[in-house]
Simulated scan of single mutants.
Amino acid sequence: MKRIASILILLSLLVLTACGNSGSTEVSKTSDGKEKVKLLLAAEGTAMYYAYVARDKGFFEEEGIEVELLPGKGGSYVVQQVGAETIDLGIIAVNSVLPAWDKGIDIKMVYQVNVTNLFDFMVPENSKVTDIKQLKGKVIGVTDLGSGEVPMVRSILSSAGLNPDQDVTIRAIGAEGTSIITAFEKGEIDAFSGGAHDLISLYGRGFKSKSLLPEEYLSLPSTGIIANGKIMKENPEVVEKVSRAVAKATDFAINDPDAAYAVMKKAVPEQYTDEEIGRLFLDTFIELTKPIEPEKGYGYIYEDAWAKLIEQFSEGDEPVIKNEVNLDDYLDSSLLEKVNEF
């Protein structure tokens, strides 16, 4: 009987091992003792240049961690994976995390990368549309239905009295400037919302636009590092190390943009086939990551701006946020002092 019991225990352990350690905060290590970390990015390349610079200039290695960058499936996907504890850390456009907070999912914002809104909501310069309300019955293009601008678009529509599920069509058309321009020319979309990288691609091709973005959305936070609540309780040191490496990389790029350009051109050459546009992309995102108040260091979380963000996304008949969100449960600045010790 003892032997049978031992076999059953062994089988149970094997089953658990086969199922994986989803949600575990135990970080595996390389042969030389470095902690291995997977960092899930909402976008690939220049928009999150600091992650690539941190990897390729050795800032992650300096922190004793080996980081695998997993880019490109949109902010909603990153939030889903971090919320499910299948991935511990991600970098997102902050709008993407709001629906998760609305459901009470324990995801912490631990480092604010960009402190101003990098998204716009616009129409062609010659469009007769001058107000959000005039978009009723029309088609709004976005890069991807899981991308960070979608919650913002829904919030703006709701605030204008439009139902984003009934009064308009939100259509994914990709991030390529030529595709967006073609969609406008063929009448497939009437408006477009995207991030700075999408808009640079458009404007670099001579596209002229006018913005419909309400003024109150201009100063909202836009990008940050998120961590699931479990790793913040059990292994905050890893979060601190990743964040500090990102801070070092941001500082490096601000002080030596030419060196950052060389890193990015090698890391994602397809985004730099047009070197002039590629450099414009990078310079724009480096500018977006410069601290408003340098004395507060990198990653500083402006709680008043977050409160404004919650307020904006709670308005309208079909708001993104339907329940009360206590920001004290989700904004976590506890690591930032150490993060800036370099």
Rank of each mutant, 00 (worst) to 15 (best):
S314F: 00
F121M: 08
P236N: 01
V325L: 05
A183T: 04
L157K: 06
L199A: 14
P269W: 02
G20M: 02
G64L: 00
I277C: 08
E324Y: 08
L213A: 03
G206C: 09
G229W: 01
M122D: 11
G316R: 10
S76F: 08
L89R: 06
T250Y: 09
N235R: 00
L8T: 11
G174F: 01
G299K: 11
M48A: 11
L157H: 10
I321P: 00
P294A: 09
A5I: 09
V110E: 01
K322W: 09
G23Y: 04
L213C: 09
F60S: 02
R55K: 15
E61F: 07
G187L: 11
L309W: 07
T182H: 13
R244N: 11
A18V: 04
N255A: 13
E311N: 09
M1N: 14
N126G: 07
L288G: 05
L309T: 11
V238R: 01
S179G: 03
L70D: 14
L118Q: 14
T86N: 14
L282Y: 02
I310A: 05
D88N: 06
V78S: 01
T130P: 02
P221S: 07
T178L: 09
G83K: 06
N163I: 07
P294M: 08
A227I: 00
I181Y: 10
Q312M: 12
A18F: 07
L280I: 14
